[in-house]
């Protein structure tokens, strides 16, 4: 039976939500297929604990590589172990989350296996021959590219977290296969983790926010960046921003950055200030319930995807909003 593998990424022993999203989507894609694959979760971890969590996730099989050296993420070790597992058990399809780890490990594995890899997929489907087609944003999300990997195996794809909904699956008593990775982790990798600074999220992750207020470059260059943040706070909304805000150093990290290279969000309400509407940002928020944009540029692309717009200087509108709220 052909196997469809999903890497169940663990962070400090906890399985990432992306695993359940990818599993739900993969099951839906193959729901009416003639040839049903064996759905398997693949875990690289420091101990056996994460595998227990997967036992009733709805997969048929769990492949576990458990070594103390795999507790923390090391790209070289993760790449080597996942490659060895794939070489041993030869999956037909190998899906990973397009997370920080997955986006780094997947290309390394694909190079070692000399196979194809579709990046940051936002849709999966089967054609009449039940070949997997992978759809992903191209040109920063201006267009969607559709890809196949016709001859090489496994077919590999990284899947954008937050795009697919996690649907509870019928629990199966999954078979556990333990993979001995001791020789691989003992080999010289040329790269070692020297320090890890834990980032504690004090605020609600933006993927879970019902209302999002977004700062675009237009708000920052006009000196109104802090006002956007204040308005978000007063409104009881979560705050997010576009790629240039992170690139130009207005924010110290990318935790709340929305777009193809950031988070995918679907709030009930999205309000953007000085957001130009670059394809790469739109791709990450287009499925929001209601979209409102405030921009001084009448021709702003962000207006094309909005339900409501205010054409005005966003600083002036923010001053009024802060006064009136």
């Amino acid at each position: 039976m052909k196997e469809l593998w999903i890497v169940a990424e663990q962070n400090r022993g906890v399985i990432a939500a992306s695993f359940y999203e990818i599993l739900s989507k993969a099951k839906a894609v193959y729901a009416s297929a003639q040839e049903q694959p064996c759905f398997a979760a693949v875990v690289l971890a420091g101990d056996e604990m994460p595998a227990a969590e997967l036992k009733s996730s709805g997969v048929d099989k769990i492949y576990l590589a458990s070594e103390p050296m795999l507790a923390d993420y090391n790209p070289a070790l993760y790449t080597a172990v996942l490659t060895a597992m794939a070489e041993t058990y030869r999956p037909e399809i190998l899906l990973v989350a397009a997370s920080a780890q997955g986006s780094e490990v997947a290309p390394g594995v694909s190079a070692r296996l000399k196979t194809g890899l579709a990046a940051h997929c936002t849709e999966l489907k089967l054609d009449e021959q039940e070949q997997l087609h992978m759809i992903a944003p191209a040109f920063g999300g201006k267009l969607m590219g559709e890809y196949i990997i016709p001859t090489c195996r496994p077919v590999m794809a990284s899947i954008k977290p937050g795009v697919f909904e996690s649907v509870p699956q019928t629990a199966k008593d999954a078979e556990l296969v333990c993979f001995d990775a001791s020789d691989i982790v003992a080999a010289e990798a040329g790269i070692e983790l020297v320090s890890s600074e834990e980032v504690v999220e004090t605020e609600l992750p933006i993927e879970k926010a019902e209302v999002l207020v977004c700062a675009g470059l237009g708000s920052a260059v006009t000196g109104n960046f802090e006002k956007v943040k204040t308005f978000a706070k007063k409104l009881g909304a979560s705050f997010c921003y576009t790629r240039p805000i992170a690139d130009l150093g207005y924010m110290p990290n990318e935790h709340a950055m929305v777009g193809t290279s950031g988070k995918t969000v679907k709030p009930k309400l999205y309000i953007g200030f000085g957001v130009s509407g670059a394809a790469q940002h739109v791709c990450g928020m287009k499925d929001s319930g209601m979209i409102i944009n405030i921009n001084s540029d009448e021709e702003a692309d962000s207006f094309r995807i909005s339900n409501y717009k205010v054409v005005s200087d966003c600083g002036a509108v923010l001053d009024e909003l802060l006064k009136q709220i």
């Binding site: 759809i135 196949i148 094309r304």
Partner: peptide, 14 residues
């Protein structure tokens, strides 16, 4: 190994 089948419009106009 990865082949583009084609492109689709990503028009999210409202």
């Amino acid at each position: 190994p990865t082949q583009a089948v084609g492109y689709l419009d990503a028009d999210f106009h409202r």
